[in-house]
Design a protein around this nucleic acid. Sequence first.
DNA 1: CCTTGACCTCAACTTAGGTTTAGGTTGTAT
DNA 2: ATACAACCTAAACCTAAGTTGAGGTCAAGG
Lengths: 121, 121
Amino acid sequence: MNYTIGQVAKINHLSISQLRYYDNQGLFPFLKRTEKGDRVFDEDALKFLEIILCLKNTGMPIKDIKQFVDWTMDGDDTTPQRLEMMKQQEINVLQQIRDTEENLLKIQQKIARLEREMKKS
Amino acid sequence: MNYTIGQVAKINHLSISQLRYYDNQGLFPFLKRTEKGDRVFDEDALKFLEIILCLKNTGMPIKDIKQFVDWTMDGDDTTPQRLEMMKQQEINVLQQIRDTEENLLKIQQKIARLEREMKKS
DNA sequence: CCTTGACCTCAACTTAGGTTTAGGTTGTAT
DNA sequence: ATACAACCTAAACCTAAGTTGAGGTCAAGG
């Protein structure tokens, strides 16, 4: 199954310009075009997009994602680099989760304090 | 105990210019100054800073943090608004954690795939 | 035929969140 | 006395990540 940029945007809750921007940044080197010039996303492209969004949504800058994409295009020689990168990202994400949980606790304590404050009046 | 901007920066792993920037954005309306003009953070200021950083680090934009700060300065009348805001932020943060955990899983699957790839060679 | 909708490019613009620079004051150590 | 460190302001500058606008192509429907 093939998808237009508009369909991909809807599926992934992105804007069309965001997708074009990513393409211009070199994140979709695999993308095909119709004769007319329209971008065509196939199933593989959607799968690849998923991992790219995953990296982006865990805070990886586009530059670094591009490095990952470039390595992927370079083939199996770069598997060690990509593995290393993903392991580092795993560590980052685990830390993110711990930090966020700590902040959640503080917010919940603030809520408790504000609720006591409300009852006093 | 009182602290200079440099000490506060070190304690919270921020840059001095970041703290001055936040002050200029109106996040520290309570801040005192020496006669010379230097900012002075007391224990209360540090506590307040902690909740501000907590909101910032869970993705709240500075504009919204400023709203929270303004309400705090307006006194007890605004407790309901602040409570509402913190409850919404709690919801956001819970969702963030869930999303991040989902992304973590995808990254771990990618790691597993890359490791299988490595062994093949 | 002609208009509407979905796509295209390229360049300019925007926004958030800072950082940097230039020029200045003050307090302490040599 | 002078030099150094730590603070100050205001304004200019910077970067990342997009968005917007002008101008254009194509296919389908009325």
